[in-house]
Design a binder for these strands. Structure first.
Lengths: 99, 99
DNA sequence: GGGAAATATAACAGTTATGTTATCGTGCGT
DNA sequence: ACGCACGATAACATAACTGTTATATTTCCC
């Protein structure tokens, strides 16, 4: 399992523009990363999560890439599938297991 | 200051359809109510909050009515202005003061 | 009652996010 | 080499959400 920092580093290497996006919109990008991280923690592929949420793999990929922010309803669907809890405040954006 | 239950009751009286919406999409509607509640707790009018967030009053009213769910970026802006913290999970949707 | 403040709603144009199919690239195992 | 799984991306249509002005209605207070 990867640490958060490792995860970000890997994404930056894959796509340098990622770091810039990160600086500009910390929490918006974080939600993408946080969701991806939790999915991996749950040992699910994007396709598996897609099926669980009634979506398709490209949509999951798109959300995890940060291309678009998840709509509220979409967020709920994913949190349900992943049994996750989102804590969002002016200073943090975290998605944790709530089992 | 109103309790959560009082707040919901008032809204149901004003607009019977509200109860139906509430039953159908519990968490989606809750976010609208939760944000409105926190705003009032902070003693702000919709216009004041609008100014703080760079929006206009009708948009705040619209969000609080549950007509549309707030986009993620919008949610962040409002939480910042209200110094609020959102906790969202499969079983709860709560916005509290984080001061 | 009257005026001001607060809230609600409509309408319109623009932007963002979804949903989808198709396709491509990569990695891994046989 | 081939097949499969996984993830990334494009393109398209459409729904959802924003942003706004204008206006109506409600609430509050003197």
């Amino acid at each position: 399992m990867k640490t958060h920092r490792q995860y970000i580093t890997e994404r930056i290497e894959k796509k340098p523009a990622f770091a810039q996006d990160l600086a500009e919109a910390e929490r918006e990008v974080t939600i993408a990363v946080e969701l991806a991280k939790l999915r991996e923690q749950r040992g699910l592929s994007q396709s598996q999560l897609a099926r669980m949420t009634g979506m398709k793999q490209p949509q999951i990929a798109r959300l995890e890439s940060g291309a678009y922010m998840p709509a509220f309803g979409t967020l709920i669907r994913i949190l349900e599938a992943l049994k996750g809890k989102l804590e969002l405040s002016p200073t943090e954006c975290r998605v944790t297991c709530c089992r």
